[in-house]
């Protein structure tokens, strides 16, 4: 069993299909919706955590792709210019998901993208504007 997070972008006419239901029933994937934005008739975006066998997750992703859902690993949608970071800690103050942490011994920023819940608070909290997150 593995656990991975994906950002799913739905086309305008996909709102009537119970795609996540099929992920659970047909591919035996445990899903956890961490963030959702749905604009009926326009678009929809989901941050979905999938837990299952690697093969099932891969098959589930193929199923979504066949239904014109753009499906990308979360890490690919997060851009962080780590080389410019001054380790001030401002982003860690807002990251309640625990993806951004700073502490002993070296007090340098650690970023575990797999824990990100795309709250996007770090985007504005960083005084150097080093974060970009593409959810839509």
């Amino acid at each position: 069993m593995i656990k991975r997070r994906f950002i799913l972008n739905f086309p305008p006419d996909s709102g009537d299909k119970p795609l996540s239901y099929h992920l659970v029933r047909d591919y035996d994937i445990r899903i956890n919706i961490l963030k959702a934005e749905v604009f009926p008739g326009k678009r929809g975006s989901l941050l979905l955590e999938m837990q299952g066998t690697a093969a099932n997750i891969e098959a589930g992703i193929s199923y979504l792709t066949r239904h014109e859902v753009v499906c990308e690993p979360l890490e690919k949608r997060i851009r962080f210019q780590h080389e410019k970071c001054i380790n001030c800690g401002n982003c860690t103050a807002v990251c309640f998901a625990g993806a951004l942490t700073i502490g002993p011994p070296d007090w340098e920023l650690q970023f575990d993208k797999s824990l990100c819940v795309v709250c996007e608070l770090c985007v504005t909290a960083c005084p150097l504007k080093l974060f970009e997150i593409n959810f839509q």
């Binding site: 001054i86 380790n87 070296d106 340098e108």
Partner: peptide, 13 residues
């Protein structure tokens, strides 16, 4: 309450 610095201890060191 969770704490966070807003000044760089790494740079200060």
């Amino acid at each position: 309450v969770r704490t966070a610095p807003v000044a760089s201890l790494a740079k200060a060191r």
